[in-house]
């Protein structure tokens, strides 16, 4: 089966956090490394501050753009509890990279639900391989908090076996020139945090 040779990546977060940019960079890096690639993302209503998921699959031959439960090599989450929501996609031995950023849903602010106070402890229980980073603080230290997605992506890259120059080339092709240095640094910082 092609399953074993196909790498699946899942990126999640909240609409507006940069999930799609991170998945685009992943896809480009995989193409540059010579793989077949399929990606999937959700547009429209799902982007208005809702929970967002993007998926990337690469390998010698990829049929489905959708990741099967329990097969993703890496799950990257730009928000702390979104990782818990999409946990079923991750393979039992997969890597979870979670940014500690908290975005409180309006369902919580209006008293319909509660935001788990013990999110970090939960993450540590359910993900045997967890990299938990303060992506926003790390990115801010490099110059712009909006590069938190690339910090997370950098950490995720350790599980993906794609050459570093492919990642760099992919970032170059996906971000504006004036933001290139920031994003390359953010990616590198993510890798360091995961090592």
């Amino acid at each position: 089966m092609s399953e074993a040779q196909t790498a699946s990546v899942v990126l999640v977060g909240v609409g507006g956090q940069g999930v799609l940019l991170a998945s685009e960079i992943t896809a480009r890096a995989a193409i540059l490394a010579g793989h077949q690639v399929k990606t999937n993302e959700v547009h429209g209503m799902a982007q208005r501050g809702g929970s967002v998921i993007a998926q990337v699959r690469f390998g010698p031959e990829v049929h489905s753009p959708l990741v099967e439960q329990g097969t993703a090599r890496v799950l990257g989450s730009l928000e702390r509890i979104e990782a818990l929501r999409y946990r079923p996609y991750l393979a039992p031995d997969g890597l979870a990279v979670v940014s500690s950023q908290m975005i409180v849903p309006t369902t919580v602010s209006t008293g319909q639900a509660t935001y788990p106070a013990d999110a970090e402890a939960r993450l540590r229980r359910v993900f045997p391989r967890l990299v938990y980073v303060d992506g926003v603080a790390e990115a801010r230290a490099l110059g712009d908090s909006r590069a938190a997605n690339i910090v997370v992506l950098g950490a995720m890259s350790l599980a993906l076996d794609l050459p570093m120059q492919c990642w760099e080339e992919a970032i170059k092709g996906s971000v504006k020139t004036r933001l290139l240095e920031l994003n390359l640094k953010a990616f590198q910082r993510g890798r360091e945090l995961a090592e």
Partner: peptide
């Protein structure tokens, strides 16, 4: 049988529907 078993850590997550920006 093929599904990932649910875990209590994810059982009570608040819904995050789309909202006005």
């Amino acid at each position: 049988a093929g599904r990932m078993p649910p875990v209590p850590e994810a059982a009570d997550l608040p819904a995050r529907p789309p909202v006005l920006c």
